[in-house]
Design a protein around this nucleic acid. Structure first.
Lengths: 187, 187
DNA sequence: TCCTTTAGTATCGAGTCGAAACTAGTATTA
DNA sequence: TAATACTAGTTTCGACTCGATACTAAAGGA
């Protein structure tokens, strides 16, 4: 940890990422399949499309199309043509897909995170957020942050009335405010 | 960041890892090729073998054998049969390999790390180290830490005499103390 | 209406990946 | 010493990713 500390941090990130990938060969799925399932679990209803997933993964639409085809054929994901734009599909997890996510091979890593001290968690959280947003900004990629941290999010009174998205001009349920969105802009 | 903070931290790690992988398609190499080159740059002389690389990556020997064959055919890595154990190869980067590492597509991420504040760097460093060592311990994997942090490392006086590895019973040059080792045990 | 853009699919070739069978040195033990 | 077990690495196989490219089809402008 003497000189070149940034290189050391990079190596840690790289190795953790590699180990996560290698562990994610499970239940007959490949790493990218699990990532797609997890994405769909975390995305809000506007972001459950192949295009949004492509941007999230930093992949290409051809590859993502293949991935989704595999997941659909296994009965884990369902496509439904959108009524307002018939080019586009709304993706959703099936009950089987949600069920399978309970056996996510990477949940051991989540447990390892839980076992860190509270202050370590906070520091790690903030460090990773800073790094990710810096890196994403360098490439003009979307952050995929949560609704509630978005500049377009209009919070309503706690009683009754739902929240609202000023960009997409749609109401947002309380339960959706933690979901991630491809249009999110922190602010 | 309300509840389920560990899940959020996990998602950050996963996405950073994915983006690193996707960026590492460059110079005609695949992500795992760059990882192997970086490993060879950081490994000490005892750890420059296919078996050590396999353990580091959490991969299998067949896959790593393929990877090394590809790198050798591109003239980036050289294999030399070890004289003491003729089953085993000593791997080394060629001049061309070292040269190519200067065009590592992931060096932009290292730059992004450099741009973080000093205290953020420290916190990120410590958080990632804690997490990685916890996770590795759960699976009985080798940490691949640095010589200088190893329980078998006997530090010599700063003048003259070289350092020494109590496990492998070999001298360690000052320049090697930052390198990573497949036998390293923190202590 | 023509033209462009956008969402997604289909197909190709190179190469990963895990699994399993294999070769060939080395170490153990009878 | 000879049989046996173990270890380092290679080879081959099939499934699948991945980027690239060409494609279909719907939406949106001019």
């Amino acid at each position: 940890m003497k000189k070149e500390r940034h290189t050391h941090i990079f190596a840690l990130l790289e190795r953790i990422g590699r180990l996560l990938t290698m562990e994610a060969h499970a239940e007959g799925l490949l790493p990218v399949h699990w990532e797609a399932l997890r994405y769909l679990q975390r995305a809000n209803r506007f972001s459950m499309t192949a295009a949004a997933l492509t941007a999230y993964l930093g992949s290409t639409k051809g590859t993502v199309s293949q991935t989704l085809k595999a997941l659909e054929s296994k009965g884990l994901v369902k496509k439904r043509v959108k009524t307002n734009d018939r080019r586009s599909n709304h993706l959703s997890l099936t009950a089987k897909g949600r069920n399978l996510l309970r056996r996510d091979p990477l949940s051991d890593t989540v447990k390892a995170i839980e076992q860190l001290g509270t202050s370590t968690q906070t520091e790690l959280n903030n460090g990773l957020e800073d790094l990710l947003s810096a890196r994403l900004a360098m490439q003009n990629r979307q952050p995929f942050g949560q609704c509630r941290d978005c500049r377009y999010f209009a919070k309503r009174h706690p009683d009754g009335e739902p929240h609202y998205c000023l960009l997409l001009k749609e109401t947002i349920a309380e339960s959706e405010t933690d979901s991630i969105c491809f249009e999110q802009q922190p602010g």
